[in-house]
Nucleic acid binder design. Structure first.
Lengths: 352, 352
DNA sequence: GCCGGCCGTCGAAGCGCTTCGACGGCCATG
DNA sequence: CATGGCCGTCGAAGCGCTTCGACGGCCGGC
């Protein structure tokens, strides 16, 4: 009674490839080739091996596999620590990444930005992951030079100032800003405000905020629309104040472009109390998750942030890089405007 | 020009422990012991080795380490796929987990529930992780028996019907329900409604929903409060309808306990339009993230869900299990009631 | 002054897997 | 009928690390 003979002396319930090989009456390498498909194996052998695998409940040891094959079949997902406003987007994105990665037989290691560059270096150096997805990339991000140098491929969510030598995916926020303004212009609006992210986000050099602002400005120019752009804080009380102040300074505003998930709900709630019904007195276009827009009252005309698609794309790009296939440096997803109930022609055509 | 001699013939920039040992003029095992601290090493050797490590930019290969030591220094975090309502909580939780795990020198593998039990089996079997954190555990969860059998330790967030042989952490939702009602009772409220999660959540057998309901009922009983409990859907339009219907059926309701993050904002917005000012005509207590409660208007009296602390606790418990230390089966965190501006004594003392 | 221990270091044996070269058969070909 | 390939399988050499036993010195105790 000193343990099953022929079983390695180690932990009782740990099945290795050796056990499978013995059980199927083949060489270890044959089992390996059955699993990887890298060499032809006769149907009969294949079947027998697979049966043994199932019967024994064998699962390849990931560490050993990574060591021998030099591929971990794992990718890193680097998320921003500060769980601020864009939580739902981040979550949707993360889920899409995990799901897509699993479909490509990869697992996902979750890393937070707060370890900073050295964290990335550690992850990459330890060969835990074959590549990395980095979210929340800023225009002038300290991690960018590092990523450029790293041997392991990476894909960025967001586009830094200089994307040379990188691979980036994002919504085309510049076009998104344009699309919003164009829609409003077409309805006849001439005085529009952009309620953007908190000032800190702009200061941090966050790409999407700047790009949207630029897009809005460009479209406004082209369509003879005057646009007031202003950062927008998220404090509980402050929203109402800010909004009131804004309307005070610019009483002829007839439409709002809101790019601030956290603010959009309160803004909608405040507008009626400030004497502006939506959409009769004030049109509102949001750049926010679709779910948000659907659930707001009234339902919001919006440009959704396609977190899920960005996630899928990012993984797909990374996989192609892992296979040494060429990929574009920047992939911008086209914005889609969904018209709902929060926009209408202005009641009174202001001037013109 | 056939590569640096003395360097392994492999990828040019891959530093191994052999390189470090050679550079420092010691044995490989010595380097290992310097890193692990498992044997005494003279100060002078230690310093020299560490210098070499830094100079060469050495990072231990995670796979090799896992293989040899039989510990991956990684834990799995199993999150619910359906990114429904509790997104901010999940996110806060995940971040706390990653941060805490890193502090214990562990990484986090992100897994979604949709792989189901077989996913857990795969992760565990492949030895990618030393243990797992499983969120969103339901009263009668199909993964529970599996987790009980698994060789690898796990910690559940949420408490299944039978927690025997498991390790669970959660907010004490039963007490949380009680605390809310007690607060209202103390203010003089006698007719209270519990606006819970959507019916589907109850049907699914989600522990926290049931436990809160039970706690509310128990406290109501004890304090002579009548309580109407009703699931609460989240549709955009439906909230107002449901609320109106509820007030219609129970016009003497003077307080609400809301356990539905997604609904709390809209509910607050609707109440005034239904002729109920908060808190003069209707008190509201919420069970929701603190941030939410702070930002609502009026600021909400609430029992926060301490996602961050749950995350920390969960990791701590798992680490103790990894070290074979005993841990309690169920850890319930005490609820804390934070009184803000949404509760007050009822204007008219109903009966009594 | 000798010996037992301890301290610091080394060498080697794996951990479980992949992959490469080798090697028997078998079939098709000349 | 010999020959060359190809197909399917095997054995063995690592992948980079941990860990165990061994082994010299050195110190203190008797």
């Amino acid at each position: 009674m000193t343990g099953t003979p022929g079983r390695s002396r180690r932990s009782p319930d740990h099945v290795t490839i050796v056990d499978v090989a013995r059980h199927a009456g083949v060489a270890v390498s044959t089992v390996s080739y059955v699993l990887s498909g890298k060499r032809a194996i006769s149907e009969v052998t294949r079947t027998r091996v697979l049966a043994s695998i199932r019967e024994l409940g064998y699962h390849p040891n990931a560490g050993a596999r990574a060591l021998a094959s030099r591929r971990a079949n794992t990718i890193a997902l680097v998320l921003p620590l500060r769980a601020g406003m864009q939580v739902p987007v981040v979550m949707q994105f993360a889920i899409a990444v995990v799901t897509t990665a699993r479909r490509c037989d990869h697992d996902v290691l979750l890393v937070t930005s707060d370890e900073g560059p050295s964290g990335l270096r550690r992850i990459a150096g330890s060969a835990m992951v074959d590549g990395m997805l980095v979210m929340d990339v800023e225009l002038d991000d300290s991690r960018v030079p590092l990523l450029r140098d790293l041997t392991r491929p990476s894909v960025l969510i967001g586009v830094p100032a200089d994307p040379t030598g990188l691979t980036c995916v994002d919504l085309d926020f510049h076009r998104a800003g344009q699309v919003c303004v164009e829609h409003l212009a077409r309805l006849g609006h001439r005085r529009v405000a952009l309620l953007g992210a908190p000032a800190a986000v702009y200061d941090r050099g966050t790409g999407f905020a700047h790009r949207t602002r630029a897009g809005v400005a460009a479209a406004a120019d082209r369509h003879g629309v005057t646009v007031v752009t202003q950062p927008f804080e998220e404090g509980p009380a402050s929203i109402r104040q800010e909004l009131a102040a804004l309307l005070d300074r610019h009483p002829d505003l007839s439409a709002l472009v809101v790019q601030n998930e956290a603010a959009v709900g309160p803004v909608l709630a405040c507008l009626p109390t400030l004497g502006r019904r939506v959409p009769q007195d004030m049109s509102v276009v949001a750049i926010c998750p679709d779910q948000f827009a659907e659930q707001a009252a009234p339902r919001l005309t919006s440009v959704p942030v396609p977190a899920e698609e960005i996630g899928r794309q990012a993984v797909a790009l990374l996989m192609r890089k892992l296979h040494d296939e060429p990929v574009p440096e920047v992939t911008l997803l086209p914005p889609r405007l969904t018209i709902r109930d929060s926009t209408a022609a202005p009641t009174v055509q202001v001037r013109r």
